[in-house]
Structures are given as C-alpha cells and as structure tokens.
Design a protein around this nucleic acid. Structure first.
Lengths: 328, 328
DNA sequence: GTGAAAGCGCTAACAC
DNA sequence: GTGTTAGCGCTTTCAC
C-alpha cells in the first residue's frame, strides 16, 4: 500500500497535523521539522491523496473537459491548450468524449461533477434546459453554446459565415447550399441562420441540407443532395464534412472547385494537406481552451465571479477548394 | 450545496447506512424503504459521491488513460474504444495528454494514481526503469511497450516491418531508409531493428534517419536527408511523418511514388484521403484500447491476476504512395 | 510551533 | 432489515 500521512508522522515522530501543514501550509511549521517531514515523505514515497484532501477542502484541483468527439481534429488543439494552461496553474484536466451522444454527455457531467471543481462543456449536444439544470450541480463553462446566465466562450459564427457567403458571391455563385451538422449544436444554428440571412440580403438562393453527421461520411452523404439542388457553392458545418463532400463529389465526377466550390469550418490540420486544399473558417481553438480554463478557475475560486461571455473572432482562409462560378 | 447521504436519510427518516445500502447493496434493504429512499434521493437530486466512496472501498471505478499526443489521429480510436468499453462496465476513463514529454508523463501518472483504479499508459516515452517504479504505486497496463513483469498490449511491429521491407524489395527498391521517431518509443526501436534485420537478410541497404518528432513537421525534416542518401524507398515511424515527408518531397520536386516510395505506420484516417493515398501498416487500435481496459479491470479486481502480454497482428495496406523502383 | 479532536461523505463490520 | 460504530486520508479549528 502507498504511504499515508500517518506513516510519515510516525517515522518523523510528529503529529499528523504537522505533516499535513508541512504540505498545505508550510509557513505554519518550523523549518527544521518541516525538513524532517519532507525527507521522511520522500523516503516513503508519500504523496498527499488529492481525493481525500478534496473531501475536507472542497477543492479537487481537477477540472473536467467534455468534448463531442476526440477524433475530430477540431478538439485536440483545444484540449491540449486547456491542459497545458491548467497544469501551469496546478490543475489537472480530465477529458471525456461523448461520442456525439447527448445521453452520454449528461452522464459524464454527473460522473465528473464530484471529482472536479468544474467542467468545461465544449460544443454540447444536449439542450439548453438540461444545461441549466446541470449547472445547478456543478460549475459549468460552455464553449460554442450560449445559455442565458452561464459563462461561455463563443466564436463569431455569424460574422464568419457572412464572410463565407460574401466570398462565394464575389466569385459569382448565385445558387448556394449549406450542408448542416448536428441539430443540437449551437454553431449549426448560428451558421444556418447567418447563411440564410446573408444569402437573402445578397439576393442569392440558399438550400439547407441535412442534418448530417459532422464527419467525412456525413459530408459524403450530402454530395448527392448538392448535385440534385444544382448549387455551385456549398458551405459546410465543419471541415470534416467539407472534406468528405469534396471527395465524394470527385467520385461522382463533379470537380472541386471547377464545378462546385466547397467551404469548410474549423481549419483542422488535414485541411491544409488535402488536394485541393480547403477554403475554410479558422477557429481560435487553443485560445478558446485557455480562456475557458481561466473562466472556470475564476468561478471555482469565487462562485460570484461574473458570468461573462467572450466572443472570439474567426478568420476566412481562402485556399483551393473555392473558385469562380462556372458560366451556365 | 449538493445533497449528501445525510440529507436523504433525514428526509426519509432512516439511518444513513440504510441510504448507503439502498445504493450499494440494494438486496440488503427492504423494498419499501428502498423505494422511499430512492424517491427522496431523486427529489433532492442526490448522487453518491464516488470520491468519498472510494476512500472506504478503495475502488474509484475510474481508470486513467495517458497518451503521448491526442492530436495524433492514431490515439482517438484507441481512446474512444477504451472509453466505450469501460463505460459498459460502469467505469469512467480520464484521458490525459503528455505532449510527448516524459516529465509530464511521470507527473500525470502520479496525479492520476490516487483517483483511479489503474492507468493505461499508451505509447510511453519514459524509460523502463521509471515505469517499473511507477508500477509500484499504481496498477499499470502498457500499450506499445514491453517491460518485464508488466501487463501489456503490443503490436507485432517486427512482423509488420518485415512485410513493409519485403513489399519495397518486391518493387525493386535496393536503397532504403527508415525515418525514425521518438527515441523513447518502444515501437521505434522495434521497427528500426526489424527494418535493419530484414534489409540485411535481403541484401538491401538501409539508412537510419532521425530521431525526428513524430509529426508532419518531423517527416518534412527528414525529406532532405532522404534526398541526400539517395534512398528510393522510405519507411517512417508513423503516418504523420510519412504524410509530412511525402508533401515536402513534392515541394522539393521529388515525385511520390515515381521517384521515391513512402510507407507509413498506423493507418490513421487522413492517410486514406490524401493524394497519393498512403501505403501503411494498419494497427488494431480500437482492439488494443478495449483489451487494455479488460486487462486493467481484471488486475484491479484481482491484484494477482496474470500479467499477460498480448501481441496483436498488424496488416500492410498497399495504396498509392509506393510503386516500382525507378530504373537507374 | 505543535498536538488533540472533529469532521468531510461514505462503507463495512457488528449488534440487535 | 436497520441502527451503531469505527474509520478511509486528510484539513482545520482550537488549545496549549
């Protein structure tokens, strides 16, 4: 068995509270005794049990991070940034994957609730109602979701989507399509609305396709729809879908971007390496991860801290999957 | 504050131990009382505190999973499989990323140690000595690492590498190179040795390059070396490196596979979508994740369970990045 | 500066 | 079938 505080106390010949203080309140203990305690601890391989400590202090120094799908390259940069940032502040991050399943998401929040000081819910798929309810039993920070009264890190999807539509319009496209993703995703709604509004304002038609699974397969599934609608410019819920769409279009004999222009969202790593390279909206995921951690720690330290909402800018990256509209 | 066992006991008018039993040993309590307890618990939103429970039972029903780099598409399938498999057994998986840093890896094992029933260490970068030491303070299952006396899930890298070399030999390549990855990785050593042995046996030359960072950038960095050595067949530590290498070779005016054949390892998702599609060794990552969890749970339940080692088969997937050697 | 004692939320003998 | 008690590893008053 691993050494406990009692073992260290016995070996050193002091009371357990002195051992405890040596670790959690060093200034309260004589330097010499503290030295002996630390030496004994090192010799025994003693490390304070954080879980037990949390039982009395109420602070675990852990935070949870729940994401929809680790396999989507969108999330790793966010996860890594959050983890690195938290570690610098002596916190550990436990990551969990919901596999795009709202039920799993709810279960994971509950499972994590008591073992962390708060959880970052990234791109949630559950409804607002449930989120409000969950927020009552655990400190929550949202990423890519707006819920009244809860702290959140958002991306400017409206502004970004408008840029996309304008980009396609400038290239001469008049018949557009939006390949939609998960119905539960806030990002999806924002994009759909912004795309519709922008298209209307510019006098373009916009067909809404989907919902589709936010993966290459989902994008591939949208390919036939795209062909049927006759759209020449398609903007997708995310890069994974855009990549799947472009590939499937190729198989159907539709060239990208000569016949159809395709735009993604996220700027995930593979989008820079495929042929054609994907035009996409770049998201500041690392910054979002760090910011979410900051908000969470502030809230964990002071429950009355402001529940601010931050909206981060996104940037259109024009590459090779978009081009001038074909003359009809 | 969240409801505790005491609140439920008070509301129901029973002793806390009855509440406890209603959850952890239902058969020991009268069905009627149990019904009242559960009703009260539901009303109060009570959920047993797993951390507190663990303090007395010694079981957290959590397992830790430490990986070198979540952003490498090799890991997500393993993570997802492990998580899904564990959840079916009522366990939760906490994932942590070491960012390829051995020091972080050690720290994370310690941090997780007391909050989980064991940890799966996937593709560790720390040395065997340290692993043996860590294994003394926490139940460990290794993936992609062989350490005497510790349970492990391995891939047949020797057999796989031999297949790769044979494949290149059949295509007429005589000057080969191995683009090496992290020096701390078991997989890297296995591949290097197997490649050298196979090449020697077949009378081919093999240049060992690196070590390089196991990413696209690392692979790109190996490109100049490849050109300098004049090798026409290159096998890489992993797909990420192979992808980076192929791309950089293209920029240098070296065509893949016409001038140089490139082989990866892992069969990550992007390898199927790039042009040329990558010839690679497919690894059974999902199976490995599930198996590691099984081993861990067995060990956690019975510390004397056998420390078996499983070696999984890998498969050569021939795509478009390898072709006949150029006539010189 | 250090020890004693209570208690965090829960489980596990042991009585009754 | 249910209550009592002790205790998991630790922190935190409160004395001295």
């Amino acid at each position: 068995m691993a050494a406990t505080i009692r073992d260290v106390a016995q070996v050193t010949g002091v009371h357990i509270s002195t051992v405890s203080r040596s670790f959690s309140a060093p200034h309260l203990v004589n330097e010499a005794t503290r030295g002996r305690v630390l030496a004994a601890a090192a010799r025994l391989g003693y490390r304070p049990n954080r879980a037990a400590r949390a039982l009395t202090t109420g602070r675990t120094y852990n935070i949870g991070l729940i994401v929809a799908n680790i396999a989507n390259p969108y999330f790793p940069p966010l996860i890594k940034a959050a983890q690195a940032h938290a570690r610098e502040r002596d916190y550990h991050v436990f990551v969990a994957d919901t596999d795009e399943d709202p039920a799993v998401e709810e279960e994971l929040v509950h499972a994590l609730a008591k073992q962390v000081d708060g959880v970052v819910l990234a791109s949630p798929r559950v409804g607002n109602r449930l989120i409000e309810q969950l927020a009552r039993s655990v400190t929550l920070v949202l990423v890519n979701r707006r819920v009244e009264g809860l702290p959140a890190v958002l991306m400017d999807m409206r502004g970004g989507t408008r840029q996309v539509i304008e980009h396609l319009a400038r290239l001469g496209h008049t018949r557009l399509a939006f390949a939609g993703g998960p119905p539960g995703a806030w990002t999806n709604r924002e994009m759909r609305r912004a795309a519709a509004a922008s298209a209307r304002a510019m006098g373009l038609t916009l067909e809404v396709l989907g919902p589709h699974h936010p993966t290459e397969n989902g994008g591939a599934a949208a390919a036939e729809e795209v062909v049927r609608t006759g759209a020449t410019g398609v903007t997708c819920y995310n890069d994974l879908m855009a990549l799947g769409l472009a590939e499937r279009l190729g198989e159907l004999g539709v060239r990208v971007p000569e016949d159809v222009s395709v735009v993604g969202v996220d700027d995930i790593s593979p989008s820079r390496h495929t042929r054609p390279k994907l035009t996409t909206l770049a998201m500041p995921t690392a910054a979002a991860g760090r910011l979410a951690v900051d908000m969470l720690l502030q809230l964990a330290g002071d429950p009355d801290a402001s529940n601010a909402t931050a909206t981060l800018d996104v940037a259109l990256v024009v590459r090779d999957s978009t081009g001038p509209a074909r003359r009809s």
